[in-house]
Every structure is written in structure tokens, then in C-alpha cells.
């Protein structure tokens, strides 16, 4: 019946989308990098599956590049950087996690509404695939906008690029897929390198660690004085007494 291969490709696309949401949901830089690595792996799988399904061996190359670069090398490099620079580990959000998740769902709905009319005539699942890829792209962009932390922004950019590659490998008969994905990868690598250089210079230019301290989420002395509104969960420590502390144990 030949439905299963399409289903699996579709499911892989869905997994990419889900991982984009995971990226948005994470609060810790480490977890963001892990999720990104998994997304790279899923992208590699998707490309390999498409190569198998469409019978286009070049796509195996894309899959290989994706796997080596995005699932292994870049995450490793990012993690090493994180260790060396001792960047603060919490993701700083410009928009709350809940709000950005809601915005994410809205963006996906928009992607669906945009893709469906312009691809009229294609198979239902192919259209959904395209909608998924566009959603991944948009979510990557959303992540770049809603995170203050540079590493998360870079990860957002790369996740955006993942979405592009997903769309490219999914469209049967698209020329120059391998070249395109390689070029995009090179671009991303440049950005990452640039970011590192920038970060290191920042790092040595500024010696004001107090500025850094104020960004740490877990300030010991300040938390329990915090007042309600924004990050007021901690404010209830006063009311909850000893169990506020116990709860986090």
C-alpha cells in the first residue's frame, strides 16, 4: 500500500516540530543544547529516510552532514564553550516560557493556515509536511526573538536552518539540496564562530562580575524578599515557611 513510508517521514517531521517546542520550553542552556542535538539527529534520520524513499543517494550525504555537524560537533563545541566561559546556565527569556509556548502554537497555526491554500492539489500528508517544516523555521525565529542569551539565539538560528533543510529534503525532486544544506551549514558555522569570538572578547573586556551575579536566577539572599508578581513563586517561601525550602529539596 506504500503508506507507511510517508507516515514515517511525516512522523519524523512531527518529531522535529515537537523538539522545536522542547527548545522553547527549556530553561537551562545545557538542556537547550541537548534538545538541539536530538533535533539534529532526527533531521539526519529524516533526510536518510527521504533518501531511501525517493531513491536519491545524495540525500544520504545530507543526512551524514546533518548528523556529524548538528548532532555531534556543534553541540559538543557549544558545550565546551559553555564550560570554558562558565556562562550563566539559565536561559534568560524576554518573554515568559508559557507566553512563548502560546506564541509558538499561534505561529504553527499561522504556518498551517498559510501553507494549506498555496499548496492546493498536493497530497494531504505532503502539505502537512511542508506546514511542519515552516513551523520549525518560524519557531526557530521565535526562539531567537524571545531569548536574551546568545547561545540560545544561535541555537534558534540553527533550528531555523534545520527547518529549511527539512523542507528541502521533503520536497521530491528539489535540485541542489545537498549543496544548499552544506552552504547553510557553513553559514551557521560562521555565525557560531563569530559568536565565540565575540563572547570571548566580551568576557575579557569586562571584569564586572557583579553584573553577572545579578543575572543568576538563584540569588541566595534576595529570593525570599521577592515580591509577588513576576517571579513571585519564590515569594511564597515566606508563607509556606519551612516547606517552601523542603519542596525544593
Amino acid at each position: 500500500m506504500g503508506k507507511l513510508p510517508y507516515d514515517i517521514a511525516h512522523l519524523l517531521g512531527g518529531a522535529m516540530l515537537l523538539l522545536s517546542f522542547v527548545l522553547l520550553y527549556q530553561r537551562r542552556v545545557q538542556a537547550v543544547i541537548n534538545a538541539f542535538a536530538v533535533q539534529g539527529g532526527v533531521l539526519a534520520l529524516a533526510a536518510a529516510w527521504q533518501a531511501n524513499m525517493q531513491g536519491v543517494p545524495e540525500l544520504y550525504l545530507t543526512a551524514l552532514i546533518a548528523f556529524v555537524a548538528k548532532a555531534v560537533l556543534i553541540p559538543l563545541a557549544l558545550r565546551a564553550m559553555l564550560r570554558r566561559l562558565d556562562l550563566h546556565r539559565a536561559v534568560e527569556t524576554a518573554l515568559g516560557i508559557g507566553t512563548s509556548m502560546m506564541a509558538g502554537v499561534a505561529v504553527v497555526a499561522l504556518a498551517i493556515l498559510v501553507v494549506l491554500p498555496i499548496t492546493a492539489g498536493a497530497r494531504a500528508i505532503a502539505r502537512e509536511d511542508l506546514a511542519l517544516a515552516l513551523s520549525v523555521v518560524l519557531l526557530g525565529m521565535l526562539m531567537m526573538i524571545t531569548r536574551r542569551n546568545a547561545i540560545s539565539q544561535v541555537v534558534g538560528l540553527m533550528s531555523l536552518e534545520n527547518g529549511l533543510v527539512l523542507a528541502a529534503v521533503g520536497a521530491a525532486g528539489m535540485p541542489l539540496v545537498v549543496e544548499l544544506s552544506t552552504a547553510a551549514l557553513v553559514l551557521v558555522v560562521f555565525v557560531v564562530a563569530g559568536f565565540f569570538v565575540f563572547q570571548i572578547r566580551e568576557r575579557f573586556d569586562s571584569v564586572d562580575t557583579a553584573a553577572l551575579e545579578s543575572h543568576r536566577g538563584e540569588g541566595a539572599g534576595d529570593g525570599w524578599r521577592g515580591e509577588g508578581a513576576g517571579d513571585g513563586w519564590r515569594g511564597d517561601a515566606g508563607q509556606d515557611g519551612q516547606r517552601g525550602g523542603a519542596g525544593q529539596a
Binding site: 509577588g228 513571585g232 515566606g238
Partner: peptide
């Protein structure tokens, strides 16, 4: 805390005296 802050503009304030202060602690919501 979970819904009220965003939907009903709920505010809560914990007034915890420093160790050594003698005034009473307060909590208003």
C-alpha cells in the same frame, strides 16, 4: 500564583523582617 497573576492582576507581598528586627512579618495578597 499560577493563574491569578496573569488573569486577575493578583499581587502578593511577603514582608519578612531581617534577623534581629522585632517587627512582625506580614503577608498580603
Amino acid at each position: 500564583s499560577m493563574l491569578g497573576t496573569s488573569l486577575l492582576a493578583a499581587r502578593q507581598r511577603v514582608d519578612m523582617p531581617r534577623p534581629g528586627e522585632t517587627r512582625a512579618a506580614g503577608y498580603t495578597a
